[in-house]
């Protein structure tokens, strides 16, 4: 049976939940046995990261640091360092990386580089004998595919599972790396975006989202006012991002951010399967839509059949008056 090993890139704030891969590996081990290795890779040794990996169920933690990594690290440097770390691996292993742009790129590129099989962003993984079975969403989250492989090295990305098994305690080891990192890829110029994204979607307790029916950027300015009153993050559907009313980083859905708030306030969006795939199942959805037939009402805890133009200003006024 394949060993389990979580690969955790550190030092990039855009990786919303780096230890999700450890928790996912621990959940697989709880079903089918085995230990959970975690390889943490950052610029400096990070005691907090080691503790987090242990909390999430790692039984063997290798903390690797390379002084040549920048913060945030470049993908090419992470690839070179992980490739160096995995060069001596011989056992059949299922490598897990955190879901999200960084983890998914690393998983795909490492798999090809190390002649493994990239499994993509899986919803579940199982090991049986020498076989790995992966389930993956397809068709915008409206279908599910079951795939199998007997390849010795598999690379997948997963989100944090709903239930976490108890952490058994871990053996820890720290190493300093000095393997060469590519020097032919210039670092990106980085500009931090303005305040509207200060509240991150991932990890927000409340998310206020607008859809195609917002009909313009002005409506999104109002949603940001409402979000500020609720200490919430502001999200958007794909058509709203397409229209330029919200930024790429605000897109929620199968192809955007996956959010797990307590409350999800959805304004003027229909509730397609692709959008709902980006909202955690435990989120209570409040929907405001003038169309009583909108799909979003089928999954809402509370729905208002009303135009957002009347609801949002009135709601802001009432919340300010409280």
């Amino acid at each position: 049976m394949h060993d389990l090993c979580a690969l955790i890139p550190l030092g990039d704030p855009s990786v919303a939940d780096p230890f999700a891969a450890v928790a996912a590996a621990a959940a697989i081990a709880a079903r089918s046995g085995g230990r959970v290795r975690a390889i943490l890779l950052g610029r400096v040794p990070d005691a907090d990261a080691i503790a987090a990996a242990e909390r999430d169920g790692a039984t063997d933690i290798l903390s690797a640091a390379h002084a040549g990594l920048s913060e945030p690290p470049q993908a090419e440097h992470l690839l070179a360092a992980f490739e160096h770390l995995l060069a001596a691996e011989t056992a059949d292993t299922l490598f897990l990386l955190p879901a999200g742009a960084v983890g998914e790129e690393l998983a795909a590129r490492l798999a090809i580089r190390l002649r493994g099989v990239p499994l993509g962003r899986c919803t579940s993984l199982d090991r049986d004998g020498g076989q790995v079975t992966a389930r993956r969403a397809s068709h915008g989250g409206r279908a599910e595919a079951r795939l199998t492989t007997q390849a010795p090295r598999c690379f997948a990305s997963l989100r944090r599972p709903a239930a976490a098994p108890a952490a058994p305690g871990a053996a820890r080891r720290e190493i300093m790396l000095d393997c060469p990192l590519p020097n032919d890829v210039p670092p990106p110029e980085i500009r931090h975006t303005a305040g509207e994204q200060a509240r991150r979607l991932e990890g927000a307790r409340i998310v206020v989202t607008g859809g195609r029916g917002m009909a313009g950027a002005e409506g999104f300015a109002l949603l940001r006012d409402l979000a500020a009153l609720l200490d919430a993050a502001t999200g958007a559907s794909l058509p709203a991002v397409d229209a330029g009313w919200a930024s790429v980083g605000q897109q929620v859905g199968q192809s955007g951010a996956f959010v797990t708030p307590d409350l999800y306030l959805a304004f003027a969006l229909s509730g397609t399967a692709q959008h709902l795939a980006g909202i955690g199942l435990n989120a209570r959805i409040v929907a405001v839509n003038s169309d009583p037939e909108a799909e979003i009402f089928r999954v809402a805890d509370l729905g208002l059949v009303a135009p957002w133009q009347e609801v949002v200003p009135e709601l802001i006024e009432r919340l300010r008056a409280r």
Binding site: E144, A145, R146, T148, T149, Q150, A273, I285
Partner: peptide
Amino acid sequence: ALALRAIAAVPPAQRGGAGRV
């Protein structure tokens, strides 16, 4: 190396909303 064994449409995930409109 990776074989597709099955694919099918899936119903929307069940959510626990009260459905009060």
